[in-house]
Amino acid sequence: MKPRSKSLTLNLAKALNYALLLLACLVTLTPFYWLLVAAFKKSEDFFAHTFLPKGDGFLGVAWYKLTLDNFSRIFTELDFANNILNSVFLASSTAVISTITAAMGGYALAKYEFRGRDFIMGIVLAALIIPAPLLLAPGYQLLYHLHLLDSYGGLLLPAVAPAFGVFLFRQAMLNSVPQSLLDSARIDGCGELHCFWVIVLPLVRPMVGAYLLITFLGSWNNFIQPQIILQDADKFPLSVALASLQTAYRAEYGMITAGTLVSIAPLAALFLLLQKEFISGLTSGAVKG
């Protein structure tokens, strides 16, 4: 009798475990479901039904009340296609520029001995703790003097080789780039840049993948910098465009939700494709570093 009751409590505990996790999933996914449905609703149905409009269609839903109007309006009345292109351009170029230059810096600090290396490493560590908001006002003033306000240069140039990336790549390369391999490549006549490109970068491929994703995401979700730096609405990325839509079209909830859905869907797709790299990259810096 006893082992049976023990297995019963064990099964109950397992069931409770699953139930709590399902509840957590429900809470996290409900706002996404709401957003997905809201973007397809007509304005008269937007608040009338919490989720799908009820009716006598399949599954008790009035499917005919759903519409693509919100999407066509953000692409015709507004220039959302342009905003998407701007976001894609800004996020990809930030990711590529930042990854290559951060990997270069990390490589120098991890695999070369040179005068001033420890000092530069100290700078990297010190730069990590400077909070970004502190540099907003003086950074804006600097871009003004450099005539980089209202230009993508003002967003892309400061993204070159951030200390955080240099630090992450240094840690990755310390462990996964064997010195002997570099030495023999050099004896075989491999130039330093060529070595970096064909030997070092492939060796830290997981880190490169994760960092590309993290910087892409960071730039895609960046709001305060483009909001301050860009003035011309033609240059706005999705984050800034959507925020101005929220003010200019206050009651156009359908357009706002359609715009939000369009803004976050590419991230979801990217993440589904590259989930593993992303999570291992996120935790590698903190847990193993």
């Binding site: 995401l217 979700n221 960046n222 984050s239």
Partner: peptide, 11 residues
């Protein structure tokens, strides 16, 4: 459970 972390705080 992780998915909301992808969505920037703007959105």
């Amino acid at each position: 459970i992780f998915s909301p972390a992808l969505v920037g705080s703007v959105f």
